[in-house]
Amino acid sequence: MKPSPFGYSRPASVDEALSTLAAHGSNAKVLAGGQSLLPILSMRLAAPHHLVDINRLTELDYVRLDASTVRVGALARHARVLADTAARVAQPLLAQALRLVAHATIRNRGTTVGSIVHADPSGEMTAVLALLGGSVRVASKSAHRDVPADEFFLGALESAVAPGELALEASFPVLGPRSGTAFVEVSRRQGDYAVCGVGALVELDGDGALSSARTAYLSVSATPLVLDVSEAGEDFAAAAALAHEQVDPEADIHATADYRRHLAGVLTERALRAAHAGAVERSAHG
């Protein structure tokens, strides 16, 4: 379990990083927290010729908040995002999901943007970005572009970040008034990838009636699945039935497909109930 030989650079600026990435093209991989990349290298499941270590790009280590968006820089560790009180207030789903991301030691090192770019369909933050309709700012030597979540995840472990590009920032819309969120999952052990996980976003109208309900799913599809279950209204059991119908998970050594589908239903109901309670409470305070 030792990596194959690889080249290594540790650029001091974003410009230098982009030049290095441009020079190496598809032979290069970006190293941020290394929580997924290093095991893959050690098991020789991948053998990039060159690693571009962005850990000196401290200008990307930020969590920023404006009226509409929480913006997380490429070097912000999960732990930092989780601990950011302002971000948690502005978009509670971030912390609700982040506390379920692996373990403290991994959150101390792993980056939120890194886990999104890794595009693991079991990753909580991919589902959060998809559910909230966020976006990722991607840069190359020649251009910057913002990729919306529904265009960002191309397949399992495949994102829209092209060779020569660096993801600079992920943006998450702040939570609206009269809205609530929740994230629930079932994992085999605390901190493991979820057997199934569900994030929920519920919005109420001015009269306090449910106007919109969306759910996002972990570990049931190759890319984050987002469902609009608004039609079920406050009948969360009906919403669960909708989800149960629409997910099409696969079996693996930890769970049968039927169990996953069953969980998708159960957790949809639990997540919607909690998100709805949050929305009601927020409306009362708003």
Partner: peptide, 8 residues
């Protein structure tokens, strides 16, 4: 026994 097996 796992939760999945108990479910089945």
């Amino acid at each position: 026994i796992s939760p999945s097996e108990l479910f089945e």
